[in-house]
């Protein structure tokens, strides 16, 4: 093994990669949410909503496929390494305790969040193929590549099914739950700790995870409540 593979197959190296790819995915989510929330804004170019203007502008970026490829690579790395670490960590524990308790003063919420990272992650992992099918693959299948139907109409049509919209809400809340532990943990994993900034990072991480959860969930919720209807808002 050369120095590079050796570094990133160590427990610390793997966690650093998980943290860096995770933080990159958080960056993607922020941009994704900003674009999504434009569904609540009017279009400036005579389309149904601001989201449609954004979608058109986004698809005019020539390097978009490259960015998408990067996203896939980050995602696959994050999930692959996490599953490997999860298996390794279970093996390291050996047997489980008959009685499980914590001495952490911070309380049960943080403990539950860190203890359920694999669950929240796997639900989000199951959500993503459906999400890509809904708004990417199905769109080109139904309307052909370069479909002319506006994305906001498709979003409203798809998510007005209670089951479908409900799953989107659950997935949105779980991604927030995942990041509740994920953001500050990732910053620690890359080796950053400072008595002044670590408490701020924790609070910003909590706020950001709540914002992402509520932001993403607000769209299916608004659609289910009838606040967003096809053909304009």
């Amino acid at each position: 093994m050369n120095w590079f593979t050796q570094t990133f197959s160590s427990t610390i190296g793997k966690k650093v990669l998980v943290a860096l790819t995770g933080l990159a995915l958080v960056g993607f989510l922020i941009a994704h949410l900003a674009g999504n929330l434009l569904i609540f804004a009017p279009s400036g170019e005579g389309r149904a909503t601001g989201m449609d203007d954004y979608a058109h502008a986004l698809h005019e970026i020539p390097v978009l496929p490259l960015a998408e490829l990067g996203l896939v690579v980050f995602f696959v790395l994050h999930v692959g390494l996490v599953l490997q670490l999860w298996a390794d960590n279970r093996k390291a524990r050996g047997g489980s305790y008959a009685v499980s308790a914590s001495k952490r003063p911070k309380g049960p919420v943080a403990r539950l969040a860190s203890g359920t990272m694999i669950v929240s992650g796997l639900v989000v992992l199951a959500f993503i193929p459906l999400h890509i099918w809904d708004f990417r693959l199905r769109r080109s299948e139904v309307h052909g590549p370069g479909a002319t139907e506006e994305i906001s109409a498709l979003v409203i049509e798809t998510l007005s099914s209670p089951l479908h919209g409900g799953f989107y809400i659950v997935a949105s809340l779980l991604i927030g739950w995942h990041l509740f532990h994920g953001i500050h943990s990732a910053i620690r994993s890359i080796g950053f700790h400072h008595p002044k900034y670590t408490p701020i990072i924790e609070k910003v991480g909590f706020a950001l995870s709540a914002l992402l959860a509520v932001g993403f969930a607000s769209i299916p919720l608004a659609i289910l409540l009838g606040a967003l209807e096809a053909g304009g808002n």
Partner: peptide
């Protein structure tokens, strides 16, 4: 031994 998941336990 396992990896650190920052549970602070």
């Amino acid at each position: 031994f396992g990896a650190c998941t920052n549970t602070l336990e």
